[in-house]
Computed example of a mutant assay.
Amino acid sequence: MINGHHVVVLGAGYTGMFAAIRLAHRTRRAGVRITLVNPSARFVERLRMHQIAAGQKLADHRIPDLLAGTGVTFVQGTAAAIDPEARRVTVDGAAAPLAYDTLVYAVGSATDTAKVPGADTHAYTLNGPERAGRFAERLARLAGTGGGAVAVCGGGLTGIEAATEIAEAHPGLNVTLVSAEEPGSMMGDKARAYLHRALHRLGITLETGVRVAKVMPGAIELADGRRIRSDLCLWTAGVKVPPLAADAGIATDDHGLILTDATLRSVSHPEIHAVGDAAAVRLAYGQLHGSCQSGLPTAQYTADTIARLLRGKSVKPFRFGYFHQPVSLGRRDAVIQFTRADFTPVGMRLTGRGAVWYKELVSGSPLMTYRYSKRMNVTTVVSKGGRATRTSAA
């Protein structure tokens, strides 16, 4: 029976927000109740956290405002426990547990500072606007002294974007990017060369092929024994997910991600749908990595799947193919590497002003998607990957 069916969405990041809004539109006449749970009332644009870290002020988007007109109920609080047998979620601060018929698990991920000694106490992260803002305050004070050293640990896309943003905004600082792998290693030769020219132009020092062994006040120690001065350290290496699902006895992988079937439902509890960073989604070419590019399609698919299941209709397996790797290099430069479905690069790329416009369009697209999704079914899947996604991975 559809009428009165209660869907609880845990997490109002990119995927949880989209899943809630799209599902509300798809079931607006069916009597389905939807509740969205999130610790903060502010919608976090994770794609822009490096901008806050560099000292830029961003718009403050409030979750209740984004949900206005959808009929979705917003509950501010942290999900503390899930009882999958009773189908209830305990939310800190709530008067009573939330009972659900269907659960959408979209709790996301965060930077992991637990694996390297000192990272949790002497390094900053981009885990939310408050923490990025605290880093920005320290950065401004350091820049005000006329010089100083900043170490950005982690050479993935987040680390690259943070390092270039900081170096551009504060040219008087010595910025070092420390990475176990070559920055841009996933790109083609020409796009990677362009990225490295941008790093050189901005005066960023590269320490590659080495891991950080310890973070200390005023320095970081590398695995080869060298120490690098660091008046301020930004940690962007490694991710973790909350232990919420694993603690509840829901089937997860070794990293705590919910194991899903071909329709993104929990293999142990099919009334639970997992999307975004907290879902272990396997396709023929491998497991999806956490990104907005793949996360929004999982949310779109899950909202449509729940709507179809409530109407007694069949669903097809989830399919998705990557198509780009967009990277900002400060506010005035960027590089876009276009890819095959499995995220490997092709010969096509975009750089310079055109890439800046493209990256800004990508960063702003989720909010625009939410606005339009209140009135229509907005498609976020650019590619289903063709042959690469037609067979599930083992």
Score class of each variant (00 low, 15 high):
G147A: 04
T344I: 10
L232P: 02
P242N: 00
V215H: 09
E181K: 14
T111S: 15
A79N: 02
T15P: 04
T205E: 15
T252V: 12
G364N: 14
V346A: 10
M376W: 13
D112S: 12
L66R: 02
R371Q: 14
D224Y: 09
S109Q: 07
R26I: 09
V8R: 03
V281N: 01
R390H: 15
A303S: 13
H122R: 08
A119L: 05
V150Y: 05
T369N: 10
M17F: 03
T369D: 09
A54L: 09
D247Q: 05
L206A: 06
L66S: 00
A223G: 15
D224N: 08
L139Q: 03
R62I: 09
A110N: 06
V44R: 08
K57G: 13
V175D: 09
L126E: 12
A169F: 03
G312S: 09
A54S: 14
A180K: 10
A223L: 12
R201D: 11
I166M: 03
V9N: 02
A334W: 05
Y372Q: 14
N127F: 06
T236I: 06
R340I: 01
H289V: 13
F320Q: 01
I336W: 06
R353Y: 04
S392W: 11
P270E: 11
I306P: 01
G146V: 03
A262E: 14
A284Y: 07
G321A: 00
K240A: 15
L310D: 03
V175F: 04
A94C: 03
H200A: 15
K190L: 15
A119H: 05
I228R: 01
A193M: 02
R211F: 02
Y372T: 11
V382C: 10
V267M: 02
H50C: 03
D120P: 15
V44T: 10
K384M: 09
K359F: 12
V91Q: 05
A94H: 08
F343A: 13
A54V: 07
L367Q: 05
T125S: 08
L350D: 06
R201K: 07
I34T: 07
I34G: 00
G295M: 00
